[in-house]
Design a protein around this nucleic acid. Structure first.
Lengths: 343, 343
DNA sequence: CTGAAAGCGCTTACAG
DNA sequence: CTGAAAGCGCTTACAG
């Protein structure tokens, strides 16, 4: 192949810009990474040359020296679900503000899949990564630690977390909604939660719910604790089955998605919410405020978590500090709406 | 700095693996890219060395030769919304199957922001990109074309598309739901759509709706055509205002999100759906099937579009063929549920 | 089947 | 303030 000024990739490279601006490639590089160090006239020439050529830097080539690739990873249990969409959007937008890009993947609540995903992200040189929750396989965590990649655990706040965490107190969230029902006089309460295996958020919420039962000296019998995935249809079906044989006065749900299904089940059966059944959720997802009746729930500031996580990872890069113990707790707000009433 | 076997990045490199396996780096490279060409005993040694060291390849370094980075971009209008979440998840999972990763960003329905996003993705050496719809600024499209990056337009099918497109016939979707209402005898119909500016999906759907009015020799008066963003709360509020002064017998919505708001508005006002008002949506998002009443809508196979788009981009890389005219139309299904009834 | 060498596009000391 | 040279971690002809 003949020597060429254009790379085989079909796009102009730094050498082409340098030639056109009549400077060395080193100076073009400086122009992009440290403009102040380049004299104004030179700067102008380079800028024009780069524009004329439609030059786009190759950060991947740059990152071989740079330590940083400008790409940050996010692994969530699921993308196709209201649960994390607000978080993802906020995280991505905030990264964009910092001139970073987001590499994202979902493990579908199978923690083992994180191994392959982390590896695949690492192969792409991520500068940092956000993982949901505290439950993770040791293998990917070690891969990240060995490489000194900044990691933050998001969504759940845990004062004892071994990695920086940014999230809400899910125990408190569970406690709040359950206490609300008790305060309204409910004693016959059914609890519908997802499998808490590998899901510390759900586990903590459930502990919070149970703590209220305990403090009220009430027993949460296994038959009043049902397992259901985060799926409106499943939750609706399960609820309709529950209500055939059992008539609690209230239902606590692991999150709003489940609550939506429970509310629809009541409507399908012609039951009045909240008169016949009070329902609480956790999350305050899209629709919860506007459905009829509005869902009583706890608002978890997903947007804020996403923004904080992005900022934290970027600053971990910039300062180089591990921030090991810099846990950040975000506030939540109890949303008292129409789906709950006194017995 | 002393010469070191470990890179300054703190992770073992191909040279370390080579040393430990007592082969040349070239052979280690072959082991990863073309294993068949390495003799079995050598292969075993390399495999062991790589495992012992916890070696993870640097694809970015590799991609400087390789032409491909293994990363593919996706730009959507919004992540934080049921509309595209199923698509995003399917696209990402399918890429993972192909050992690719997804770089994603949202422009928030501001097409101009695509310029910066495309540039930022290009700086990270994407092997291909999926864009939603047909409306795009010329600048990013040129950047992509200049570099010969495979591009597919997803979501909307357009036989005249200048780039390969994979999507549903949105005109037909609009036509289907409107025709359904006419068939049920509705003549006093309000249409609630988002701003169609820069949104070819909505534009085509609206054309489809209008085509039915035309064929029925009915006029869609401006006062019966309302604009509303894709937001449940906004749609609910708007509907409550509409219903104060005007009582259509049916509402056609630009998508399911709007329909949800309309249904909640009716419930808030104590109106019966479908007796007092028939409502149709487009999309069949999470919840539409299970809410009460179930929403009559058109199911757009988002998952299938995502999977096809991922496969198409990967195969464009592998074959090198531009696939210029390979448009793929996905089928949609009309979902006749409880939110519509005869007048 | 394997190795030595050159090179991908960029950046970073080192000089000047 | 700018340039020439070396090198980031890997891959790919070219030899053998």
């Amino acid at each position: 192949m003949a020597k060429r000024s254009r790379s085989f990739k079909g796009a102009p490279g730094i050498v082409d810009v340098a030639a056109r601006a009549e400077v060395s490639p080193a100076t073009v590089s400086r122009f992009f990474n440290n403009p102040d160090v380049v004299k104004t006239p030179t700067r102008k020439r380079i800028e024009k040359a780069a524009n004329d050529l439609g030059y786009i830097r190759d950060r991947m080539a740059g990152s071989m020296h740079n330590r940083f690739s400008g790409t940050i990873g996010l692994i969530v249990p699921t993308i196709d679900n209201a649960i994390f969409s607000e978080l993802i959007e906020a995280f991505a937008s905030q990264l964009l503000e910092h001139d970073r890009t987001m590499l994202i993947a979902a493990h579908g609540y199978e923690l083992k899949r994180e191994i392959g995903i982390v590896r695949s992200l690492l192969e792409r040189r991520i500068d940092g990564i956000a993982l949901v929750g505290q439950d993770h396989d040791a293998v990917p965590m070690n891969m990240l630690a060995q490489r000194n990649i900044p990691v933050v655990s998001i969504w759940n706040f845990d004062a004892n977390s071994s990695i920086p965490c940014i999230g809400a107190d899910n125990f408190e969230a569970g406690r709040l909604v359950a206490q609300h029902l008790f305060d309204l006089g409910h004693r016959n309460i059914t609890v519908i939660f997802p499998d808490t295996n590998g899901n510390d958020r759900a586990r903590d919420r459930l502990r919070g719910v149970k703590s209220v039962f305990t403090s009220q000296q009430l027993n949460l019998s296994p038959k009043n604790l049902k397992t259901c995935p985060y799926d409106i249809g499943e939750a609706k079906k399960l609820t309709m089955k529950i209500l055939e044989s059992n008539r609690p006065t209230a239902v606590v749900c692991g999150n709003d998605i489940i609550s939506h299904g429970v509310i629809f089940a009541c409507q399908a059966l012609g039951l009045n919410v909240p008169q016949d059944l009070s329902i609480v959720g956790i999350g305050d997802f899209a629709g919860s405020a506007h459905m009829e009746p509005g869902l009583t729930t706890v608002r978890l500031p997903a947007k804020r978590i996403g923004t904080l996580a992005a900022n934290t990872l970027v600053s971990m890069n910039e300062t180089g500090t591990p921030l090991r113990n810099k846990h950040q707790k975000v506030d939540m707000s109890f949303m008292n709406r129409g789906s709950t009433a006194a017995v």
